[in-house]
Design a protein around this nucleic acid. Structure first.
Lengths: 202, 202
DNA sequence: AGAAATTCTGACCCATCAGTCAATTCATTT
DNA sequence: AAATGAATTGACTGATGGGTCAGAATTTCT
């Protein structure tokens, strides 16, 4: 069946162009905000015309939604693989903070979009994102709770601690510059230390 | 000179309507993002027509810029009055964190706009805001540096600590609900404790 | 009351931009 | 070389929304 081979090739090429468009779109969205970016902008940043984008995506919302999907997939994979390694509470929470911070700094555009532009999605899509964010927070919460139960973390409301961690890490997207004085790893490690010390029971 | 009295009255009335419009605009801007809010939306949320807004403001950008001015004024006033009370480093930094967190939670709309929508300003305006933010950060940095010199804080790069603090506090705007389980003061105090413990030299 | 200033209205213009579509080019297969 | 189908173009439409303006309504002053 040559048709099958051809079909696959076609899909691969399409997938490639789609990813290319998504990457370009994400960069532009992050820079100036979704509303400020036209489909023309996305297309011409790749040397295409508007119609090409519409050939690969139904509409602007689908482009945005696919970006959200990519972000979620990547982040949740990273995080769950950490959860599986059963480290003791402090090390576990530390690894999670570190990973989240690295993710943010490694893909600043993603963070900007994921946390700033949720409101551009449809209400149904927003519901999904809210739920996913809750699940993501939940991973941090359970790690912290374990630490409290083990008597090594102070008994502070977990959502407060977790939000603080996420907020602290997310904010790096606003100031971190690739190739600056500190590497993402150093920055992440400092934050891990601040939080772990800050929450340590003494 | 009756004309003078009249002039003043006129200005007062105008000022009142202007503030009214700015408040309404800020709320809407925060909710859905600046681009998503039309001048009509702002006007009709107050029972006015579009033209009324244009009577009091030159254009949409001026509305936004005035909001940014208000935010800066309020925040920098709060902060400098804390700086003037010469507290010892740890207490000083604690008071600043507390104040910033309270400001954020007290005016969630402002925070959303000030940190999310900077990109909607003109480049000249952005430059001013960037400079102001740097000055604001500087206040925190100097407080932290004092603590390091006094040997009570660990010697972590100050911009890292300060960004962490601001990020943590700012993020409350995304989850804090008026009338929830914890008061803004309690939340602020917890964050103060986490940071001070996290940075304490031991 | 009547003049003068102020505030407000609604219709209008114009640029932008999401999304469509018929037609064309290009690549692949037979 | 002809046929099939994928990829691309560019012109078009329709809606939206920023901003203008001439005049109407209202308030204030004399």
């Amino acid at each position: 069946m040559k048709t099958k081979v051809r079909e696959e090739l076609k899909l691969k090429k399409q997938a490639y162009v789609q990813e290319e468009i998504l990457t370009a779109a994400a960069t532009l969205f992050a820079e100036t905000g979704i509303r400020a970016v036209t489909i023309d902008d996305i297309a011409s940043s790749l040397g295409y015309t508007k119609s090409v984008v519409y050939y690969y995506f139904k509409n602007k919302n689908q482009v945005l939604w696919e970006i959200f999907q990519r972000i979620h997939e990547a982040w949740s994979q990273d995080m769950t693989s950490i959860m599986e390694s059963d480290l003791p509470p402090a090390e576990l929470l530390g690894a999670m903070i570190r990973q989240h911070a690295l993710n943010v700094m490694g893909r600043k555009a993603w963070t900007a979009i994921y946390f700033r532009d949720q409101g551009e999605l449809t209400t149904d899509q927003q519901k999904i994102i809210v739920k996913r964010k809750r699940e993501y927070d939940q991973l941090f919460k359970s790690a912290y709770t374990k630490g409290v139960e083990a008597g090594i973390f102070r008994d502070i409301p977990t959502y407060l601690v977790v939000s603080g961690i996420i907020g602290m890490a997310n904010f790096t997207h606003a100031w971190f510059k690739e190739g600056g004085a500190m590497s993402p790893e150093e920055i992440a490690d400092h934050y891990v230390e601040i939080i772990l010390n800050g929450c340590k029971k003494n």
